[in-house]
């Protein structure tokens, strides 16, 4: 289960990188991030914060899981 979650999380940056590569193939470097008034930059930042929050919650969850194993 844990491995599955890590795989999902690892896929996210891979997807982001792939969009950047895709943009460069079109001869317009970083055009995706700079289009639409750079709104994608905001999206990237908010998604990063959210991902960080979730990673933190997951780590707390697992810590509690370990303590539960020893205590209950």
């Amino acid at each position: 289960m844990r491995n599955k979650i890590y795989c999902c999380l690892l896929m996210l940056p891979a997807l982001l990188v792939s969009t950047a590569i895709f943009a460069q193939d079109n001869g317009a470097p970083e055009s995706v991030m700079r289009s639409n008034g750079k709104i994608y930059v905001v999206v990237a930042i908010c998604v990063t914060i959210l991902a960080g929050l979730f990673l933190y919650v997951v780590s707390i969850d697992r810590k509690i899981g370990k303590i539960e194993k020893d205590n209950l």
């Binding site: 289960m1 998604v47 959210l50 697992r62």
Partner: peptide
């Protein structure tokens, strides 16, 4: 992690919210 499917669902739905 205990009973993870709905936790993953939460992450997916919120990531979707934050992009869409």
């Amino acid at each position: 992690m205990r009973k993870s499917w709905w936790k993953i669902l939460a992450a997916v739905l919120l990531l979707y919210t934050f992009t869409a």
